Simulated scan of single mutants.
Amino acid sequence: MRKPGALRAGRTATPDKVSDVDTTSLSGKELAAAVNADTKERAAALAASGAAPRLALVVANDDPASGWYVKSLERAAGRLGIDSTTTNLSVTASAEEIRAALRALGADTAVDAVMLQTPLPAGVTLDEVSPEIPAAKDVDGVSPLSLGLLATGLPGFPPATAQAVVELAKFHDIPLTGRHVAVVGRSNVVGKPLAQLLLAENATVTVCHSRTTDLPAVTSAADVVVAAVGRAGLITGAHVREGAVVIDVGTNEGPDGSIVGDVDADSVRGRAAALSPVPGGVGPVTTALLMRHVLEAAENARG
């Protein structure tokens, strides 16, 4: 019988033999490459017809990590034939200034997709400004309307990170139907929308959070554990039953400046059947899906 994390023949994941279980690495690079190849081909077709897809980014912070991410999105768009522009607002921009920028881009017929980068200025919340992004252009699914469409199963763009978790599991033949999935984290960006996507896959979902009593008891009862709470090394081997699948969404700065996940990978390997690496797991798939959303928004706009 195949373990839950076993892959199709020909996949390039590498087993890490540590103790009793061969822990398969759920790399996202091959999936991201396939998504990007399709996006690039379809974007070229739109450009040939006279209108390349166009993404508009809005930034109102001076956070170095945010700046790096915006630059990475601009580079990814450029490689795939997607035009991108960035509106840089002040770090002291008011909610109304941000709403005005989003409103203008939402009304601009030359713009196919709008993305608001966080963090936002002090005192400004995503909930009060994101409704200005039309659902048809909300490629990262952050507005209350987009989240509502997701919750009710209607067409719309789900948050790319949450979608990446599901797509990564499918790519590696990890069954979700009928399985118990524990999602650690309840943010509107990952945890809550991921629960909706998993329910759509007929999984049984438990959403855990900071007030969950005896977190290891809850997560160790699950077939799949998704760590999406933003705390380095929170999930250890004690949180995972033998043979479970663990998907790490976390991107935290380690003591040496490296990027580390929410999972203590060393203690989970040899216990879990499969574990997504950080970096190289959910991350590249997230970016690829976000670019595919831009492409799909452009295709939808052109009929």
Rank of each mutant, 00 (worst) to 15 (best):
L89H: 13
A101H: 00
S143E: 15
Q117R: 11
V224H: 07
G10M: 00
A182K: 15
R179I: 10
T212C: 03
L102Y: 12
E299S: 03
R2C: 08
H172I: 06
G50P: 12
K17F: 11
V124K: 04
A288C: 06
T213W: 04
T287Y: 09
S187E: 03
P158S: 05
E299M: 13
A203Y: 10
V184E: 14
L57R: 07
F171P: 04
P216V: 01
P284F: 00
G81V: 02
A43D: 03
N36R: 05
H172M: 09
V35A: 08
T39W: 03
A297P: 01
E97T: 02
K71F: 14
R103V: 05
L26S: 01
P144E: 15
L145V: 15
A228L: 02
A95T: 13
V268E: 05
E74S: 03
V224D: 13
E242T: 11
P119V: 09
A162M: 07
P134V: 08
N88H: 08
E299G: 08
G148P: 01
A9Q: 05
P175W: 09
K3F: 14
A244V: 11
G123L: 13
A44P: 13
P4T: 13
G106T: 08
A48D: 12
T219E: 10
A265C: 00
G243L: 12
W68Q: 14
L275K: 09
A33H: 04
L198H: 02
A238E: 04
L176K: 11
S66L: 15
V190C: 10
R8P: 05
T212E: 02
V240A: 15
L55M: 07
A9P: 04
V205F: 05
G185H: 12
S25V: 06
A169G: 11
Q196H: 07
A273D: 04
G254D: 09
A244M: 03
A33S: 14
V35L: 12
A221W: 10
V294L: 05
R79I: 13
T39C: 02
L168G: 01
R269G: 08
T14C: 00
I235P: 15
V165T: 07
A135Q: 07
R8Q: 10
E253Q: 15
A60D: 04
V183S: 14
L147R: 12
D22F: 06
G250D: 02
T212D: 02
L147Q: 10
K170C: 15
T92S: 00
A135L: 03
G243N: 04
A221M: 11
A244Q: 02
A52Y: 00
A274W: 08
G243P: 05
K40T: 15
E97M: 02
